[in-house]
């Protein structure tokens, strides 16, 4: 419905827009993308490239949740806390189970051969 007449700029505890946080999130995400691209191009630099990439991905997710979406465990906004908490199991399910499945798949199929 229609917004009320309060100026959101007067309420920093519910403000989500922040130029500084957006710029930081963008730069960090770019840096992590570069790292992951380098690891993907040269898997030999890391002992377990897939785990390293997943870790970097988790880091990117954390940066986006914290700096772009402004989710945290602050007590002023219970729903952002709930959303923030939900992100963890979802990440573990989506990325963790996928990794497990592909690990199992690679041992049993010629998929990895196809990739080369």
């Amino acid at each position: 419905m229609a917004h009320d007449d309060h100026d959101p700029l007067n309420h920093p505890e519910v403000r989500v827009a922040s130029g500084r946080a957006y710029a930081a999130a963008f730069l960090i995400a770019m840096a992590l993308m570069t790292v992951s691209l380098y690891v993907a191009r040269h898997p030999a630099v890391a002992p377990h490239p897939m785990l390293v990439l997943s870790g970097v991905a988790a880091f990117v997710v954390a940066v986006q949740l914290l700096l772009l979406l402004k989710l945290d465990f602050s007590s002023t906004q219970i729903w952002t806390s709930v959303t923030f908490a939900l992100a963890f199991p979802l990440f573990v399910i989506a990325v963790g189970l996928s990794l497990w499945m592909f690990h199992s798949l690679d041992a049993r199929t010629m998929l990895m051969g196809l990739m080369r």
């Binding site: 499945m101 199992s104 798949l105 041992a107 199929t109």
Partner: peptide, 8 residues
């Protein structure tokens, strides 16, 4: 049927 292991 993709070929993942029995535990998966």
């Amino acid at each position: 049927t993709m070929g993942a292991g029995p535990s998966v």
